[in-house]
Design a binder for these strands. Structure first.
Lengths: 193, 193
DNA sequence: AAAAAACGTTGATTTGAATCAATAAAAACA
DNA sequence: TGTTTTTATTGATTCAAATCAACGTTTTTT
């Protein structure tokens, strides 16, 4: 049985057996435990991680010490500091496992090689990054014209399991509001009208 | 002399003469006048536009009637409703020329063909979309922890010519603030301390 | 060139979320 | 299992930006 990662690529672009072998040769499986860091701000992001199992988050810390969560990555998602990965500059994001997780790691050299030698891999990556861009634009677009209440409902709709898997304060940090405000949002939404 | 568009691609990936000819065969040059629309919300985005000259903006309208500007696109930038372009669904963005502009249009069929038949074109596109993603993430990341004043200074630094080319209220709409607030920001920044 | 529309500034008031603060509840730990 | 640490809720207060409003200026239109 192939890894979830290969299956995932194969569901988007049809891979030959040779391509499967090539990809398999260049990826590394890794488990990471809850609360452990996949990446810390200041380090170079040496790998892109595909989440086979579990849940991680990327975030930045601000002057005042509070966090802004950039992304939650669940099964089937990628997570990395893409700029750091591509440029070799120090990362600006921290990436932490929220649950015990199983990752597939792709190093920069492996990624370069696969992009060059496996056209289907490049096609796949173009799809992945395009989807990520569209999703981010959609999220970005929602900020100025939706109320906080609507933004919370949006995220619930998009990730119904999220409240069961992450503490409320992280959802607040993702929405860019304080935990107190989120608590009040939830209260408002419980008492409809 | 090749079009700016070909030069632009060629500066990122080395194109063969055959590739240049192929690309040239599949692009269309178009001029668009100030205040005219390249795309209107509800229509399908049939083309991606590369800006050879001029300046455009993409924006959405909200209930209350005010605009949120998603992107300014100057010389050397792409602009489109990417989701609509790729999916064929109606666009959610309006794209309007702020100045008389010269565009290179790439249709969906042309794009598909070039991605398939011209590996360098695919490599180029992967770079373009990756850079766009990183830029958007950076912009997104700046929102929660920078003050409005800092965000205005950021955009000035990034696009020093912008205030000369677009009305102030559009910069406000880009920053997600009201024109009144931007006016006050500018006043504050003029009187240092 | 005159009229109309859009734009930018300034002031007064309102408002939604942040902050400060205290307490209860749940989770992590030793 | 009991203790400590994190998390969630609720209330009071503050604050930054939105809104409402008025007015002069610039730009566009005819």
């Amino acid at each position: 049985m192939n890894s979830t990662y290969i299956q995932h690529i194969n569901s988007k672009v049809k891979l030959s057996k040779a391509e499967v072998v090539l990809i398999q040769k260049h990826i590394v499986h890794k488990k990471i435990r809850k609360k452990h860091y996949f990446l810390q701000e200041g380090d170079v992001c040496k790998y892109t991680a595909f989440v086979e199992k579990g849940l991680l988050r990327s975030y930045t810390l601000h002057n005042n010490g509070n966090e802004h969560i950039i992304q939650f990555a669940m099964e089937g998602w990628f997570i990395a500091d893409l700029y750091s990965f591509l440029s070799g500059e120090p990362a600006v994001y921290n990436i932490e496992a929220i649950e015990d997780s199983e990752l597939v790691l792709i190093s920069k050299p492996a990624n370069d090689l696969l992009l060059q030698q496996c056209p289907n891999y490049q096609t796949f990556m173009l799809q992945v990054i395009t989807n990520a861009y569209i999703a981010l634009q959609k999220r970005f677009n929602a900020i100025p014209h939706l109320t906080v209440d609507e933004r919370y409902q949006n995220i619930l709709q998009q990730y119904p399991t999220l409240p069961k898997r992450v503490p409320q304060r992280m959802i607040a940090a993702y929405l860019g509001i304080t935990p107190e405000t989120l608590s009040r949002v939830r209260k408002r939404l419980q008492q409809p009208k």
